[in-house]
Computed example of a mutant assay.
Amino acid sequence: MPEVIFAGPEGRLEGRYHPQRDRDAPIAIILHPHPQFGGTMNNKVVYNLHYAFHGMGFTVLRFNFRGVGRSQGEYDQGVGELSDAASALDYLQSMNANSKHCWVAGFSFGAWIGMQLLMRRPEITGFVSVAPPANMYDFSFLAPCPASGLVINGSADRVAPPADTGQLVARLKEQQGITITHEQIEGADHFFREPYMDTMVETVTGYVKRRLTETTR
């Protein structure tokens, strides 16, 4: 899988780009957790999501936000990181002009950034939001949420408590024209430590495959 360096708003951004042979393959961008708490594109959840999407036939890009790894710049409270994500999606689209489906997946802080990107980019057709920290960040910008997607969390998550996730999902489900699927994995913590990682990946894979089947009928 090639390492890539592409232009971001504050300089170079470092990523891992995993293409398919099919020129029409769907594309997906994977967003990592909080840069100031050890979040990188090599986080286990991000890594597993990357390979799950590639295994389903997606061309996939994951990358380091500004100030992480070899990505230039400094942490910017989520504002700059959203711009980084937009630049990463631009880069991914420039390499895959024939793609008909575009997904965004994010974990924790990355889920918050991913949902904001969803609001800005109407070409995104689906999302996966893993352990969204609804207790820490305001998700009220999702009014209305422009695409259907999956919210997945663990019942033993102490970083992003299940009650807050449930309230977020309830608000999203009130909106017309989209379908929000919510899956809570019993016993899993915020990081889906074993034995729950495989369950999380299987849940995501099952959901995305169903969506892809629906769109190709």
Rank of each mutant, 00 (worst) to 15 (best):
residue 153 N to Y: 07
residue 22 D to Q: 15
residue 35 P to A: 09
residue 13 L to H: 03
residue 81 E to A: 06
residue 164 D to S: 10
residue 40 T to W: 12
residue 78 G to N: 09
residue 99 S to M: 08
residue 75 Y to M: 09
residue 143 A to M: 10
residue 141 F to A: 10
residue 136 M to Y: 13
residue 40 T to M: 13
residue 73 G to Q: 07
residue 108 S to P: 08
residue 137 Y to F: 14
residue 173 K to Q: 15
residue 121 R to S: 00
residue 71 S to A: 11
residue 80 G to N: 13
residue 50 H to E: 15
residue 151 V to N: 06
residue 6 F to H: 13
residue 170 A to F: 09
residue 54 H to A: 15
residue 91 Y to M: 07
residue 63 F to R: 07
residue 196 Y to S: 11
residue 3 E to G: 06
residue 35 P to T: 15
residue 175 Q to N: 02
residue 26 P to W: 00
residue 4 V to A: 02
residue 97 A to T: 13
residue 62 R to Q: 01
residue 1 M to G: 09
residue 40 T to H: 14
residue 213 T to W: 01
residue 58 F to G: 00
residue 54 H to L: 06
residue 44 K to D: 10
residue 125 T to S: 12
residue 187 G to Y: 04
residue 198 D to T: 14
residue 80 G to S: 06
residue 3 E to N: 10
residue 105 A to Y: 00
residue 213 T to P: 03
residue 206 G to K: 09
residue 173 K to G: 07
residue 4 V to I: 15
residue 151 V to R: 00
residue 196 Y to K: 11
residue 37 F to H: 15
residue 47 Y to R: 13
residue 14 E to Q: 08
residue 47 Y to N: 10
residue 154 G to F: 07
residue 152 I to N: 02
residue 109 F to N: 04
residue 23 R to F: 13
residue 216 T to F: 05
residue 198 D to F: 03
residue 4 V to H: 01
residue 52 A to V: 11
residue 120 R to C: 09
residue 33 P to G: 04
residue 133 P to E: 10
residue 123 E to G: 03
residue 181 T to I: 05
residue 72 Q to F: 00
residue 17 Y to W: 09
residue 16 R to Q: 13
residue 72 Q to L: 09
residue 127 F to C: 02
residue 120 R to S: 13
